[in-house]
């Protein structure tokens, strides 16, 4: 019985318990002004965080007990190519958020579309899901498509919905 089991779920559960406990303590710092027979501002945060900590602890205990009963050996979640894909796409999204106002909507969006498609292609090749050589023509096609898409949306919002998205950098 040397079956292993990832402790990802256990770690997440534990993080929820700890987070709730921290928030519970922080709620105590809220000023205690109820007035007119009502409850203070700290009442709801305290009740909810206490309940989260309690219920998440039960989940945690059940989880660990199940692992013990099945005689599985705990191990850290292994880093797989698939996991890397999730992290990579999230990182590209964060980059998009960072550049959204700095580069303006058109450039940041086009850049994001190109980058995320490229990242997914790269990883899918590594896992053997995509085959065939990279081609310059398809690359250029993607860039043009991404720019055309971003520009269309920009003007659609400007003209159609009177919403001005961030323009090109250096404009103001």
């Amino acid at each position: 019985m040397t079956e292993t089991r990832s402790i990802g779920a256990t770690l997440f559960n534990a993080a929820v318990v700890v987070g709730a406990a921290v928030a519970f303590v922080a709620s105590g710092n809220l000023p205690d002004i109820g007035g007119q027979g009502s409850l203070p501002p700290s009442f709801f945060p305290r009740v909810t965080t206490a309940a989260i900590a309690l219920l998440a602890s039960i989940c945690l205990i059940r989880d660990v007990a199940a692992m013990y009963r099945a005689q599985q050996r705990p191990c850290f979640p292994s880093i797989t190519l698939v996991g890397v894909a999730g992290l990579a796409i999230f990182a590209v999204m964060m980059g998009y958020a960072l550049l959204f106002e700095r580069l303006g909507y058109i450039l940041s969006t086009a850049l994001f579309v190109v980058t995320s498609v490229a990242v997914l292609s790269l990883l899918a090749r590594r896992s053997g899901q995509e085959k065939g050589a990279w081609s310059l023509r398809r690359g250029v096609g993607l860039v043009v498509l991404a720019l055309a898409f971003a520009i269309t949306i920009f003007y659609l919002f400007l003209v159609g919905f009177s919403i001005t998205l961030p323009g090109l950098p250096l404009a103001d």
Binding site: Y96, S116, I163, L165
Partner: peptide, 27 residues
């Protein structure tokens, strides 16, 4: 599929940012 993923993401960003114009909402 991979292009659709990218385009949907840009719509999510647009939807969240577009109306209020607050990058905080994106984060």
């Amino acid at each position: 599929r991979k292009l659709l993923l990218a385009l949907i993401t840009t719509f999510c960003f647009l939807g969240v940012y577009g109306v209020a114009g607050d990058v905080f909402d994106i984060w």
